[in-house]
């Protein structure tokens, strides 16, 4: 009997046809917690991977959401990010889970995502190198670990290409124009990535600006394409 990684309740996963044929991806959670995670699948924005089922029809233009249309129509950002895919909907349970993981510092919770992330990596992003979004020295010391690095390590060999040049500012405290602004570059590439396909790893895709800033830095450093995978969207 193992214990649920999240709520610690002992559980045994029910034996089913899915588990026999290994269709079910083990996430270390009990059935109850597992049910609260909403996997993203079905009709999604082909750019940022957000599920269309969760927002009104008028915010979409064909297969792309309005936010991505706006990013792509800005010449600074056109074609910078090849695309993003996220594993789960950022629902209240996922918010709690990530806040326990990141802010309380429960590193063990990274294991919840290893198998699903690896599966997505194999399926959608073959031949990409894994690059986690870095933390500033200060934030890294405060937390003791980098939540994105830990996820990436569970997926395969990691390339720590990026570093932070400035301390993280809360994205939520900036307006859209500030977020789209490219004046102060938050990242720097410290390794040559010429001709490489890169998969960025981060915990949450919210506005897409962190991911795009990182993608831009990598493209400037020679990457042939940059995509991203996040736990939540």
């Amino acid at each position: 009997m193992s214990r649920c990684l999240y709520c610690f309740t002992p559980y045994a996963f029910p034996l089913s046809w899915e588990s026999l044929f290994n269709l079910h991806t083990d996430n270390g959670l009990c059935e109850e917690c597992s049910e609260k995670l909403e996997e993203i699948n079905g009709d999604i924005c082909e750019m940022c991977g957000r599920p269309f089922s969760l927002f009104p029809e008028q915010y979409r233009q064909e297969n792309t959401c309005n936010d991505c249309v706006r990013w792509e129509s800005d010449i600074v950002w056109t074609g910078i990010l090849a695309g993003n895919r996220s594993l789960y909907v950022y629902n209240p349970f996922m918010q709690e889970m990530l806040s326990k993981y990141k802010y309380r510092g429960d590193a063990e919770l990274a294991k919840v995502f290893y198998n699903t992330a690896r599966k997505m990596y194999k399926k959608e992003f073959q031949k990409h190198i894994l690059v986690p979004i870095p933390l500033s020295e200060e934030r890294h010391l405060e937390r003791g670990f980098n939540q994105s690095l830990l996820i990436a390590e569970g997926m395969g060999p990691v390339h720590n290409v990026l570093i932070r040049t400035s301390h993280e500012q809360k994205q939520s405290k900036k307006n859209r124009a500030e977020r789209m602004n490219m004046e102060n570059k938050p990242f720097e590439a410290v390794e040559d990535v010429s001709g490489k396909k890169v998969l960025l790893i981060d915990d949450v895709y919210t506005t897409g600006s962190t991911i795009r800033q990182a993608a831009k830095t990598l493209r400037d450093a020679g990457a042939s394409s940059v995509s991203s995978l996040t736990l939540a969207r």
Binding site: F8, D106, A107, E108, H140, L141, R143, G144, F145
Partner: peptide, 9 residues
Amino acid sequence: LFASFSCFR
């Protein structure tokens, strides 16, 4: 209920 991680500190 003890786990470990590679600690930056």
